[in-house]
Structures are given as structure tokens and as C-alpha cells.
């Protein structure tokens, strides 16, 4: 690792990952706080979530399962499946946006809709980053542990976001 091995020689990846997760977690915590404050306003009208949102969850969860299988077995096809499902999730999110737009809910139509778009877009950016990490891990299997942990975290964040926007 570091030169002549005089260092503690612990791998920095887990801690670096923890840092990333902490800062991403705080980002969504900040959005949650904004959501909770904003929803107390008089103009708050809940928007029904697109039905496909739940299908997307299933896709994302299966993607997580596939990546996990890839991590445990070290087999490429699992990873490819996980990647494919991740891309499918993003496509599904776009369909969800189309569903919203089709119902006349645009970014600036109302606060709940605004949050749906913003949260899914910010989450989508992290999904893209996760897909990049998984693809990188496809080339360098040593990184798969880190990449899959990030992927699970991103998946978990989306479940959390869905709970926030549908229950609160």
C-alpha cells in the first residue's frame, strides 16, 4: 500500500466509503428537513405517487440482490444483471416523471410534486454514480465490496425517500 509498508497498513476504502455515505446521508437529511418544514404550509396538496414507483422499487431491490450475489460469488453475469436492473430503475424513474407530467404535475406545480422531482433527480444522480462504481468494479473486482456497499446504500436511501414522500 503506502510505499515501504511503514504505515498502519489498514485499507482506507471502508473509511472513505463511510465518509461518502455520511455526507450523502446528510444531504438527504437536509432535504428531509426542508420537506418537513415545507409541508406545514397551507398550499401543501399531496400528489399520488406514480404506480410505477413501486415497480421501480422492486427493480432496485432486485438489482441490489444481484449485486450482492455478484459480490459473494464473484461472478460477472450477476454484476451485469445488477447493472442492467440499475439502468432499468433509472428508466423507470423517467417513466414515473412522465406519469407525473401526464397528470399535470410539473416541477413548479405544487410543493409535493416539486419534492418528488427534486428528490428523485438528486437520488438519480447518486444512482448514476453507483452505476459508475459498479462498472468500475467490473473492471477491478477488488473494488466490488466498496461499490456494492455504496449501491446498497443508494438503494436504501430510495426506500427511505419513498417512505418520507408517501407517508409524511
Amino acid at each position: 500500500m503506502n510505499g515501504n509498508g511503514a504505515t498502519l497498513a489498514t485499507r482506507p476504502a471502508p473509511l472513505g466509503l463511510l465518509g461518502v455515505l455520511a455526507t450523502v446521508g446528510m444531504l438527504f437529511a437536509a432535504f428531509t428537513a426542508a420537506y418537513l418544514v415545507r409541508r406545514t404550509a397551507a398550499d401543501w396538496r399531496p400528489v399520488a405517487l406514480p404506480a410505477i414507483a413501486w415497480a421501480n422499487v422492486a427493480v432496485l431491490v432486485s438489482s441490489g440482490a444481484a449485486v450482492e450475489a455478484a459480490r459473494r460469488t464473484g461472478r460477472g453475469p450477476w454484476l451485469l444483471a445488477g447493472l442492467g436492473l440499475g439502468v432499468a430503475f433509472l428508466g423507470g424513474q423517467l417513466l414515473a416523471w412522465r406519469d407525473l407530467a401526464g397528470r399535470g404535475v410539473f416541477l413548479a406545480t405544487g410543493p409535493h410534486g416539486s419534492f418528488l422531482y427534486v428528490l428523485s433527480a438528486v437520488h438519480g444522480a447518486h444512482v448514476l454514480a453507483g452505476l459508475g462504481a459498479l462498472a468500475y468494479a467490473g473492471a477491478r473486482p477488488a473494488a466490488l465490496g466498496t461499490a456494492s456497499a455504496f449501491w446498497h446504500f443508494v438503494g436504501g436511501i430510495w426506500l427511505y425517500v419513498l417512505v418520507v414522500v408517501s407517508v409524511l
Binding site: 511503514a6 504505515t7 489498514t10 482506507p12 472513505g16 461518502v20 455526507t23
Partner: peptide, 17 residues
């Protein structure tokens, strides 16, 4: 943020013996 990630990991993980 990138800098901060580096600081934390370097300080915790890359210390010498």
C-alpha cells in the same frame, strides 16, 4: 467534500507505525 474525505481517511488509515 473531496478534500475532507481524503483528510479523514489519510489521518485515520495512513498513519505510520
Amino acid at each position: 467534500t473531496m478534500g475532507g474525505l481524503n483528510y479523514v481517511t489519510t489521518i485515520v488509515n495512513c498513519r505510520t507505525r
